[in-house]
Amino acid sequence: MAEMEVKSGGGHKGPGVKKGKKLSTRVDLTPMVDLGFLLITFFIFTTTLAEPTAMNLAMPKDTKDPNLENKVKESGSLTLMLGKGNVVYYYYGNDPTKMQTTGYKDLRKIILDKKKSTPVDDLFIIIKPDKDATYKNAVDVLDEMTINDIGRYAMVDPTPDEYKLIQQTEKAGGVQ
């Protein structure tokens, strides 16, 4: 492909002086393109384009004194319990036995409905990931808090009663 034409022979073939043939200046760039793409591939594989982001998390201090605990209005509280297999159990107020089951897709609607029907100062969302929930579940729910602009929420462990309840429901529902 490289057009470096070399004149063969040389003698005068015809009458008159033969003009010197112009050599082509074109250089074959195929190997250079190959090299370029090879390097691109190399850089794509070895570099990280997206810098990791960080979300802030502030945890409450564990306190043994019940007087210091945050008081939550029953009418304004929504408790989300994160269970095994990407399932969320939620209940309003203080009665865990009334809990309902949902998934992560419908969670936003539930949060928004609660937010609409509750005065801003009363709204409090309690997140209780149980032992079998994954870390992703917890981060997803915290993310929902940011997305829906929930000012007050806390992440705590479920009480033994609640945990038992979750396990019973899971057993009944056959969640592995």
Binding site: A54, M55, K61, I147
Partner: peptide, 16 residues
């Protein structure tokens, strides 16, 4: 009590 959780960036769902 304050931590940063390392995550990957994600787009904010529209309408929220």
């Amino acid at each position: 009590f304050k931590y940063n959780l390392v995550t990957n960036a994600e787009d904010v769902p529209p309408g929220t």
